[in-house]
Design a protein around this nucleic acid. Sequence first.
DNA 1: GTTGAGCGTT
Length: 268
Amino acid sequence: MSHFGRSGPPDIRDTFSLLVLNISFRTTADDLYPLFERYGKVVDVFIPRDRRSGDSRGFAFVRYKYADEAQKAIDRLDGRTVDGRNIMVQFAKYGPNAEPIRRGRVIEDAEKSRDRSRSRSPRPRHRDRDHRKRSRSRSRERHGRDRDRDYRRRSKSRSRSRSRSRSLSSSPDHKSRRRARDDGKRKSRSKSRSRSKSRSRSRSRSRSYHSASPARRSASPRKKSPPPKRSPTPEKHTNGKDLPPSRSVSPSPKGAGSRSPAGSDGKE
DNA sequence: GTTGAGCGTT
């Protein structure tokens, strides 16, 4: 694991957890330990990893023994470039057991109970941290329960939206539909040409790999060559029902394929 | 080979 040979948290009685964000995906606990250890006594360094592939999520937790050292580490390492990434070091807000943290220190049982009596909400102040874009490309395993609920909600919303859309536009829909059909035919030809171009572009496939790793692979460089040719499946638009293939609007022209993680590196 | 907002394990 990412620990120092011990299983689970060593001792969270008086440890100050620091959250290190924006670290490289290649950065490991062993790489962060010396950095943070220079500014104080590091109790433990943990990097959450994905259970599917096992890759780092891009952030780590560093536990210090003293607050002053943790603060110093934050002041020193926050904003620094580590492994080519500008890391952000700050106090963790939650403990390993989803327990609130006061001043970066893990609250004890007694203190926790007493503290929660007065203020049960750990973070009722600001929730607008930086909601720039919460959509991750492909990461963070989503629990089936939440995922199912989300899917249900989106499906319902879509149905409602479509229903309302039909009510609003009933007359223009016919014209739009008829026009869409005409465009569909012309678009078909255009698509055919586009496909031809795509194939031509796919022809050029020459990449020179420079071995940056000290250990090179003794395997044959040309073991298997994947077929560069794309699947010749011309998508036929059902312009007879709905979904006007107008060039103005494109619901999902690309990227509507299934994701293939294939992240079996088997590293470590 | 990829990704990039956030809060953690035996």
